[in-house]
Every structure is written in structure tokens, then in C-alpha cells.
Amino acid sequence: MSVLLQVENLELAYGEVPVCRDLSFQVEEGEIVTLIGANGAGKSTTMRAVAGAMLPRRGRIIFDGQEVTQLPAHRRLLAGIALVPEGRRVFPALTVRENLEMGGFKFRGERQKLDAQMARMLEMFPLLRERAAQPAGTLSGGEQQMLALSRALMSAPRLLCMDEPSLGLAPLVVQDIFQSIRAANAAGTSILLVEQNARYALDTASRGYVMQTGAIIASGPCAILKQDGRVKEAYLGRR
């Protein structure tokens, strides 16, 4: 397996306030990798930096052998990185179909490719087909998460970054979402997953990194992390 995403010594800050220091991790082609940690550990910030929504102070991000550290978000998408942002962030006044079209913006010159992607997404999420002409703002939270996920998949990304997909959703809906994430992975998309619900995350991913106050304190295959005393105590509940 080859390395798809390589993050080296990343340092992130909002203005003068440091959030993360000396972060290093990687995602290999075809993997599902998870970053877990408590609120405020810097997981979402790290995701934003990978997708280009914020630029790092120091360190390097290498994607598919190319340095993308300073590329803005719209160029990273062209390189093959898509982010499903925390809180879903669908365009509320655009219809479901228009939201999907925006996800496939890079195929705007290739009508056939766009139509094919659209057909795939509507097949994968039949519920979105029913709602296609509805403004996205009228969807329920779970439906919006489905839309945000399929919108990101419209660009046929090589790396899909999922930021807190379970946030605020009912357990049954969360199961659906994770099912879809695994399906996207089975279809060849590598996935970087940030999740507060460590149990879901560790069950879904093959490898994980544990973050605490802006630094990685443990890493390894999920099966081993699940047995790690610190992880058990902090995130899975004492047993």
C-alpha cells in the first residue's frame, strides 16, 4: 500500500492561539483512519487544515506525493481531497440537486461525468432522489448529513475527510451514515474520520490516532487501541 496523505510536524493556530503542535500522521491508499479525542483536542482544526480551509503555521501536508501545504481549499479539491465539514454546512437555499451539482463543480465542463456521478449518488441515497427539488434547509439533520456526504462524493475524491458525522443525530441514523462511509471506502475512497463517538470510530476504522490538547498521544491499529487503558478509560467508558 502506498501513502496517500502524509502530514508532517503540523502546527496550527487561530491567530495567536495555538491549537495543534507537531502533528504527524498518515493515511494509506484505501484505508479508513480515525482521529479520536475529547472536545477541543484539535481534531476539527486538523481536518480543516488537511482540506485547506485553514493554512498551517508550520509543517507540511503531502498528498499523493505532492506538497499541498499552501494550496487553498478549492485547489485541494481538484487534487482529490473532499471534506464533509462539521455541522454538515449544506447550502440551505439551494435545492438538494443543486447542492449535489456544487459538489460536482469540478465536472461542470464534463456533462456526462457529472450526470453519471449524480445518478450514482441518487442511487446510493434514494431518499435524496425524493427530495431532489427541495431546498436543503428543509431537510432533517440526518438527511442533511447524507446530502453533505454525497455532495462530497460527487467530486469522486481520493481522500474523503469526515468531520463528526454522528454529531446531533439519532443512533439509527448514525448507523446508516457509517454504513455509507464503509460503502464509499469499499468503492475505493480512502477516509479520514474525526469522531467524538470513539466506539463508532474504532469499529469503523482500521487505524487510529488519539489526540489530546493538540497533540497525538497514541496511535495504532484500532483493535489494539480499543485495548489501550487510556483510550478505554477516557473514551470508551471504564470497564
Partner: peptide, 24 residues
């Protein structure tokens, strides 16, 4: 038009529009 829809997307959420590959 694609561009017109993208313009509405930028108006609604500039950062997320960037994540779609749209240059705001």
C-alpha cells in the same frame, strides 16, 4: 447556470463553497 448557482453557494457559505472546488 452552473456559475450562477455557484454564486448563490458563495453568498450562502463562502468557506464551504471553497470546499466544493469553487474559487470564491
Amino acid at each position: 447556470t452552473f456559475l450562477g448557482k455557484a454564486l448563490r453557494a458563495v453568498a450562502q457559505d463562502r468557506e464551504t463553497a471553497g470546499l466544493m472546488g469553487i474559487n470564491p
